[in-house]
Nucleic acid binder design. Structure first.
Lengths: 175, 175
DNA sequence: CCTATCATGTAATCCGTTACATGATTAT
DNA sequence: ATAATCATGTAACGGATTACATGATAGG
């Protein structure tokens, strides 16, 4: 019961959203990503057209068309898709993430913190406020579908705090 | 003096290493990446053969062959390459990094923390110890070429600490 | 009316991942 | 000797980014 190696993280994002939200158009998936997991793992909207097609070819989702007007594509997860999602969720992952931060890269190669730090400090601070707001909103409004989103935001908040501290220290010239 | 959009982060990693270490073979680049920036932005070794070729085509580096035996390729940064690197270092970056953590993705979609957290807690703890050791080593041994590496490690340590705290809390069942 | 912005897709290019291969050293 | 690891590359495939396009809706 290991997870299917032909499926990528993008695949599981699509499957996960379809499992949680029911049948969706690519645009609805785009909205779903933008409002939640996209803060931590974004997916360009073109992928949300291409990926469901691949998944349909593999039998993980079904593809239908709206009857009227635009005849938009509508995707729904199949039992096979649910199984693949469950199998993926059931196994641990040894792979550690990397920071992969362009600003950090520049710093490493000797960039002046004065040109890199202020912009990033501001950006991360703004994002931190956003995450705090979202977290507060979820805590109140009874979060949908388990508290995975809540935990994810907590990780995001902690990391944003680290970034704000780090870049503000450098922006202030205290290296 | 904006940075060349045809160059990728991988390009700048190669340019940065060539600028710091002088003419190098792809294998030397691999060693350079592995020992330092690779902890935060890894590059598969095949890229370290392909990327210098692209850079040579653009005039950012020169390609020579060793005279004897293996006739390995040796790359050296050109003035054009130095300029591109300097231009890249001289501009800020508004783009914020994403966490892009597979474990977090699983958590978001409802995975049991018990299957995801312990492995990641252990992995991040080990990495944290590694970073602390490297940091200590650099502080002592007079770090080579500015303190960019030192700052980078400090960011890495702070984030590793956050991850350890996060996953250990979940592993312990205190959600 | 006009112009933003939202909504909805397609196409091309290419970097990056993964797998494949093989010669040199070192260890046992 | 032989296994293991280091060193040094090449090839293929595909997902992701980027750019291109156009119809609907709402605001002014």
């Amino acid at each position: 019961m290991s997870s299917d190696p032909t499926l990528t993280p993008t695949s599981y994002i699509v499957l996960g959203l379809l499992a949680a939200a029911g049948a969706s158009t690519p645009y609805a998936l785009k909205q779903g990503v933008a409002g939640s997991i996209g803060h931590f793992w974004s997916v360009p909207h073109s992928q949300l057209y291409a990926e469901p097609e691949r998944l349909a070819a593999g039998g993980y989702v079904t593809e239908d068309r709206e009857p009227g007007g635009r005849r938009r594509r509508v995707y729904a997860i199949t039992d096979r898709g649910r199984e693949a999602l469950a199998a993926w969720l059931a196994v641990g992952d040894a792979r550690l993430p990397e920071l992969r931060d362009a600003g950090l890269l520049k710093l490493f190669f000797g960039a002046d913190p004065g040109v890199v730090a202020p912009q990033l400090a501001a950006g991360h601070r703004e994002r931190l406020e956003l995450f705090r707001g979202l977290h507060e909103g979820l805590r109140r409004g009874g979060d949908p579908a388990g508290h995975g989103a809540l935990l994810t935001l907590e990780a995001g908040i902690a990391h944003a705090e680290v970034w704000v501290t780090f870049w503000e220290r450098l922006a202030a010239g205290r290296s």
